[in-house]
């Protein structure tokens, strides 16, 4: 069982599956710790015999192994019950520079916006709406996240984690524009411009595409 558990830790970290649960900085510790657990297991097998009594609770480790190797749950989705005030965005505000080519003007075409868009997350959008409201109008923006129909007020959801998915903060960006044919939780890449709102800044959509679930589903403390 120890060998299996250690093996599962190594596999999950090495394949990048672990990024759906914990931050990237944990990859190496997971592999090292997995190796130690394998070693402890092998030492136990070799030692053999004697009065080796594992407590009953240790059987629960089997459940963890099953989740890591067989169930392999996906990342948190928009339906997760993690509800926070939209003001959470102000906690992840982050400074950034607006490159000249991203300033496409307020009447730019969808193609223009898509070609020149600057990738931002909800914290940066919040920062810009507060600190740079004048220069931020007319900037082409690209954002990545999951679609949340939200009872007719569609929004883009992305989670920011500190250590693991259990401490996720939910960042939301209201979307205005036509969004037909999307299901709750679909990963989308959206292009557009700031809608002028300063309390919960959103995007006026120019275009959007459905994308695969990204390798790094969560923003981490380094991003936001």
């Amino acid at each position: 069982m120890l060998v299996l558990l250690g093996g599962a830790m190594i596999v999950v970290a090495a394949t990048g599956d672990s990024l759906q649960y914990v931050r990237e900085a944990m990859t190496l510790p997971l592999i090292l710790a997995g190796a130690v657990v394998v070693m402890l297991g092998l030492a136990g097998l070799r030692g053999g015999g004697g009065h080796r009594h594992t407590p009953r609770s240790f059987a629960l480790v089997g459940i963890a192994i099953a989740f890591l190797l067989v169930v392999r749950p996906g990342p948190l989705s928009v339906a997760a019950g993690v509800t926070y005030d939209p003001a959470v965005q102000s906690r992840v505000q982050q400074f950034f520079e607006i490159p000249r080519e991203a300033v496409v003007g307020e009447n730019a075409s969808a193609a223009d916006i898509e070609a020149n868009a600057l990738e931002l997350h909800a914290g940066q959008l919040w920062y810009a709406s507060q600190q740079l409201p004048d220069s931020f109008a007319g900037v082409a923006v690209r954002m990545l996240g999951q679609f949340d129909p939200n009872d007719g007020d569609p929004q883009l959801v992305r989670f920011r984690i500190t250590c693991c998915a259990a401490d996720a903060l939910r960042l939301v960006t209201p979307l205005s524009g036509e969004l037909d044919g999307l299901a709750e939780g679909d990963w989308i890449e959206v292009f557009g411009q700031w809608d002028g709102d300063t309390t919960t800044p959103g995007l006026d959509l120019a275009s959007w595409h459905v994308v695969e679930t990204p390798d790094h589903p969560y923003l981490t403390i380094r991003d936001a």
Partner: peptide, 19 residues
């Protein structure tokens, strides 16, 4: 949804604690 969320939270907490 609840089952999915439970699975993710559970796996995340175990994986975070083990190292």
């Amino acid at each position: 949804n609840a089952v999915d969320e439970w699975s993710t939270l559970f796996t995340a907490m175990v994986l975070q604690a083990l190292p």
